[in-house]
Amino acid sequence: MLKGRPSTSKERRVAKKTKKSIRREWTAADIKDLKAHSKARTPVAKIAKMTKRTEGALRQKAIVLGIGLGHQR
Score class of each variant (00 low, 15 high):
L2M: 14
K3D: 12
G4H: 02
R5Y: 11
P6S: 06
P6F: 02
P6L: 06
P6M: 05
S7K: 15
T8C: 07
S9D: 13
E11A: 09
R12P: 03
R13P: 05
R13H: 11
R13M: 09
V14H: 12
V14E: 10
V14Q: 11
A15H: 14
A15W: 10
T18L: 14
T18S: 15
T18N: 14
K19C: 07
K20L: 07
I22F: 10
E25F: 15
A29S: 15
D30V: 03
I31T: 05
I31Q: 01
K32I: 12
D33Q: 14
D33A: 12
L34K: 02
K35E: 06
A36R: 09
A36Y: 07
A36L: 11
H37D: 07
K39I: 07
A40I: 08
P43C: 03
V44Q: 01
K46M: 08
K46C: 06
I47C: 00
I47K: 00
I47Y: 02
A48H: 02
M50A: 15
M50K: 15
T51D: 06
K52C: 08
T54I: 05
G56T: 12
R59Y: 11
Q60F: 15
A62Q: 02
A62E: 01
I63Y: 12
I63G: 08
V64H: 10
V64S: 09
V64F: 08
L65E: 03
L65C: 04
G68H: 08
G68I: 06
L69G: 00
G70K: 03
H71P: 04
H71T: 09
R73T: 06
R73G: 06
R73A: 07
